[in-house]
């Protein structure tokens, strides 16, 4: 199933041949999460901006633009399901923002404990700056392999 979703996103499977995939996706659960993950990775690979202020609107527009297999009798149920999907996306965006906020708060607190007297740099290695250096300086193989923050 997941490989089929991947193929669908890469346009390796024609949309017409994938009706059953859509049906499964609309039923929610595991498959639609996989769908979201693949889209996010695909966006990152193609260089599309993600998590910009208009992220939710953009995603809603994309969902809106996606072809929907309409069966007249099921029309009502469908629109309801669709709005559910949008809500679950909104929830994950909010969750990400929350995690980011918590991490930031912890770091700010750690900083606030410092006093104003100068400290020898040897006493505490500025790992954050080492990581910042590694991530931008082009000669750093270490960044991919053994970045400062990930040392085990």
């Amino acid at each position: 199933m997941k490989s089929q979703i991947s193929a669908l996103i890469d346009a390796d499977i024609a949309l017409e041949d994938a009706e059953y995939l859509y049906t499964t996706l609309k039923s929610g659960g595991d498959s639609s999460e996989a769908w979201a993950t693949y889209h996010l990775i695909g966006d990152a690979m193609r260089g599309n901006p993600v998590f910009k202020p208009d992220f939710t609107e953009r995603l809603m527009a994309q969902l809106e633009a996606e072809p929907v297999v309409l069966v007249p009798a099921a029309a009502r149920k469908q629109s309801l399901l669709r709005s559910n999907r949008v809500w679950s996306v909104a929830a994950s965006v909010a969750a990400v923002a929350f995690v980011g906020w918590v991490v930031l708060q912890q770091q700010i607190q750690a900083d606030a404990d410092d006093t104003a007297s100068p400290m020898e740099i040897a006493q505490s290695l500025p790992a954050d700056y080492l990581l910042a250096h590694q991530s931008l300086a082009s000669s750093n193989s270490a960044y991919y392999i053994q970045p400062a923050n990930y040392s085990e």
């Binding site: 410092d114 007297s117 100068p118 400290m119 020898e120 740099i121 040897a122 500025p126």
Partner: peptide, 18 residues
Amino acid sequence: GTRPRIGQTAKGATNFYA
């Protein structure tokens, strides 16, 4: 409120100056 850093140190091939 931030503690200034001064001095020099090294870790592996990396050198630091503050």
